[in-house]
Design a protein around this nucleic acid. Structure first.
Length: 426
RNA sequence: GGAGGCAUACCCAAGAGGCCGAAGGGGACGGUUUGCUAAACCGUUAGUGGGGUAAUAACUCCAGCGAGAGUUCAAAUCUCUCUGCCUCCGCCA
């Protein structure tokens, strides 16, 4: 949530910042409603103060044998007089909230304005492989090596899904283990959250109300619940409505969950295989920091994600996203994109973001600093990593002429020491 | 799924229509005293959010005893709805 005080104090600044995110913002209505709210608030509160004062005098007046009935009548009249303003106040506050809560987070000042086209690659690792033979794409490789079963997935579930089979399942699990081991070594706490979450969790994460259509909702369940589109949604809600101490920060968590997304529209032709599906596996990192600590945490998380890919020996590119391509709730996002030879492009495997206090405001995640002052936490999240693009990149980048796939050294201990996956059919 | 119970501060807990910004105990923090690594005593500890006056402090108002609504001049206290937890029964991986 953007701080409404900031909107009122520096409307031009907010307007310009949102413009960088390609968001047209006119503060006029918010200004008007705020002024109206304040006016109504004063009126309502003064009236209530008078009511309270009169009511409190009842016992004393009674004792002294005074006329209590007159007080009753007076208070009743005051309350009746106040009713309309109270309703108007509530309506005004609701309208104000609705206007503010849909605004995306303000981008950091150093970001370029605009969308994807202005993303800046700031680092690359590895080389775009050149094969001395005709390389296969990941769908072919996965099928010929028996790693993935797409046909049966369509049968038991439907389009946009896949089944990890045999060595494919083990390779997937090895990747997850490798990620987990790294996060544990770095002192992150492991969490396995529920996958079914309530509305408030989506609201705090900033997914709602704007992206309510993008997640799967459970039918016939009241109050309504949805299946998490990323573990971030669960992790950034761990401390919702809590008051932390500065000494507790930063808090570092990671979680493995599948991610469930509707992914409306068809990408099937360009994004075959497991590039985009309704369900994919991801290990997600989340940090809660002080306001001063979030920049360092951001750098740390970007480096962690990079290290994971480097450990696998995969070619990737680090992108600093332009303001308009950052996630809705985020002030800053860096994407890590892995090279997919068959597509000839880099595809996102990790997105590390700093939400600053945007999510904390929505979820009232606060901390007391050393002076006892109450502040909003900063929250950050980053994939570490999503397997559904690492897997195809891995099999494609590591393929050999005979159709076999070399398993990265770091994964072998979870693959029974195996170093190569051989094709089971031509 | 059925029946019942509970929901007050960091924890335990009193409270049953006004005198409750909310007893008491533990813990924590601060202080005083005595002293065989501690004890006694005193004090602080209901957060917080939103307004006003005023200004780096202070005062004051509104809301706030799981959440929301209602009854009443007045609600932690009565009623209803919801949420969470506990117990028993049923069902089940």
């Amino acid at each position: 949530m953007v701080d409404i005080k900031l909107i009122l104090e520096k409307p031009e600044y907010v307007k310009a910042a949102l413009a960088k995110k390609l968001w047209e913002f006119d503060p006029t209505e918010i200004q008007e409603l705020s002024a109206k709210r304040l006016e109504l608030l004063k009126k309502v509160e003064n009236n209530k103060a008078e009511q309270n004062k009169l009511s409190k005098s009842v016992p004393t007046v009674k004792k002294e044998g005074g006329d209590v009935k007159a007080i009753f009548a007076k208070v009743k009249a005051l309350a009746a007089e106040n009713k309309e303003s109270e309703e108007e106040l509530a309506a005004t506050e609701a309208k104000l909230k609705a206007l503010v809560e849909v605004l995306p987070n303000l981008p950091d000042d150093d970001l370029l304005p605009g969308g994807k086209e202005n993303n800046t690659p700031i680092y690359t690792f590895g080389k775009k492989q050149e094969f001395s033979f005709t390389p296969k794409n990941h769908v072919e490789l996965c099928e010929s090596c028996g790693l993935i079963d797409y046909k049966r997935a369509a049968k038991i579930s439907g389009t946009g899904t896949w089944i990890y089979t045999n060595l494919g399942a083990r390779l997937e699990w090895a990747l997850l283990n490798y990620f987990i081991e790294n996060h544990l070594a770095d002192g992150y706490e492991m969490i396995l959250p529920p996958h079914i979450l309530n509305y408030e969790s989506g609201y705090t994460a900033g997914q709602f109300p704007k992206f309510e259509e993008d997640v799967f909702w459970l039918e016939g369940v009241e109050p309504r619940k949805f299946i998490l589109p990323t573990a971030e949604t669960a992790l950034v809600n761990l401390h919702r409505n809590e008051m932390l101490e500065e000494n507790d920060l930063p808090k570092k968590y990671f979680a493995y969950t599948p991610c469930y997304r509707k992914e409306a529209g068809s990408y099937r032709t360009e994004e075959r295989g497991m590039i985009r599906g309704y369900q994919f596996n991801k290990v997600e990192m989340v940090q809660y920091t002080t306001q001063e600590g979030s920049d360092a945490a951001f750098d740390e998380m970007v480096k962690k994600a990079q290290r994971l890919l480097e450990g696998l020996g995969l070619t990737y590119q680090l992108d600093k996203l332009a303001a308009g391509d950052c996630s809705h709730s985020m002030a800053r996002t860096y994407d890590i994109e892995v090279w997919i030879p068959s597509m000839g492009i880099f595809k996102e495997v990790s997105s590390v973001s700093n939400a600053r206090d945007y999510q904390a405001r929505r979820g009232m995640v606060r901390y007391k600093d050393k002076d006892g002052k109450v502040k909003f936490c900063h929250t950050l999240n980053g994939s570490g990593l999503a397997t559904s693009r690492v897997f195809p990149a891995l099999v494609e980048q590591n393929q050999q002429e005979d159709g076999s796939i070399v398993i990265p050294e770091v994964l072998r201990k979870w693959m029974g020491g195996m170093s190569v996956i051989k094709p089971i059919k031509k």
